[in-house]
Design a binder for these strands. Structure first.
Lengths: 202, 202
DNA sequence: TGCACCGGCTGACAAACGTCATGGGTATGC
DNA sequence: GCATACCCATGACGTTTGTCAGCCGGTGCA
């Protein structure tokens, strides 16, 4: 019995390469390819795959959101997340969304097919090095408002700009920023944004 | 006569997938794979490839630097740059470094082999959409020092930190930053970093 | 009923930041 | 020779930022 695989990656070159790689395996067939996150569910309904390979960074809807949407419509489909950078926060959120596996693109190509097989058989596949980082990174210490304000601060505007974006007073924004800076152990607003982004808290 | 190809990409999964993809072509052989930019020259000297496929983002030495180093030691080797994002500045710098082609990872997988063939036969391969952006983005208006200071500002440190990193006085750093902010039409140091990064000036 | 916590706001203040004027040094080009 | 541009530095300035204290309202919990 062959494993039916659906591929979702925004980089056509990578997507095609992975497709040929997996199609060479005797027990697998790539039944579909999409380049956008919001096309995943429709493609899955059409092609009925056993395993879906999802990139985290995609236009329309990111891998996390696509996993959640997929898990709701087709609960039996296994999801294997493949991503470029091993952001600790991604792993946690991906597993919470219902993903069965998490593989970084640094892993050898031969292990990908094996990961697909494991996921298909119901096992969880998690990059060991990444799992350690995930525990170290932990849950976000930021409150909802702090994350929102910090997210708005990414564009590099002034406090007044941020206040306008989130509809708060400037003083409140400064307080939230100060709190976020303290929690991330950063020295700056910009530094806090950097730290929070790298920890997957935004 | 088969085309000998050397692959350089830090993502093992992508690298392996591209290798199988190109190895399927009857007129190509992948003679080597490396995951770091500073291993490219040594691998090229050992395996004598006709074409080297280089990713821009690599540890040790980036694709631009690797191209320059390669061009100096082995001038006959053709270089085809493959990158994730089509930053306008990359294209310009890559061609200046001696690259023969520039392909973004959004291009269909089938066109990659064709691009390799064209580069091998002495033609230049440039993504059309990217070429337009490159002209729009234009040359960096920043001076050497301004770029250096702005690069040091990416970590999110204070002026004192930056001054220590680049061995300048704090006042001078502020002047360079102010100039860079003006040239990028940003409102902030953080904003200037963002703009310069997106324009490929760092 | 208290207590702790989060959200929101204000006011104040020291530190950091961005800007400007000014000076001198060097290399490039007409 | 002279203009131009870049680099380095200093001092001064007004603004922005980060921090702190205090106050109020709402929520969840012992």
């Amino acid at each position: 019995m062959t494993i039916r695989v659906l591929l979702a990656d925004d980089q056509a070159l990578v997507r095609g390469a992975l497709a040929t790689l997996l199609d060479l395996e005797p027990d697998m067939t790539v039944v579909g390819e999409v380049g956008r996150g919001d096309e995943v569910v429709a493609a899955a309904q059409e092609h009925r795959p056993d395993v879906v390979l999802l990139d985290v960074e995609m236009p329309g809807l990111d891998g996390i959101g696509a996993t959640a949407a997929l898990h709701e419509v087709l609960p039996d489909v296994r999801v294997l997340i493949v991503t470029t950078f091993g952001r600790p926060g991604y792993l946690r959120r991906a597993l919470q969304s219902g993903a069965s596996g998490f593989v970084v693109k640094d892993t050898p190509a031969r292990q990908l097919a094996e990961a697909v097989r494991r996921v298909h058989s119901g096992l969880r596949v998690v990059d060991p090095a990444l799992a350690a980082d995930s525990l170290a990174g932990g849950d976000s210490p930021l409150t909802a408002r702090e994350t929102e304000v910090l997210r708005a601060a990414r564009q590099g505007g002034s406090v007044a700009d941020i206040a306008r974006a989130v509809s708060l007073s400037e003083g409140t924004v400064r307080n939230h920023l100060s709190s976020a800076i303290g929690k991330t152990m950063a020295r700056n607003r910009a530094d806090a944004v950097r730290v929070a982004e790298e920890s997957g808290w935004l």
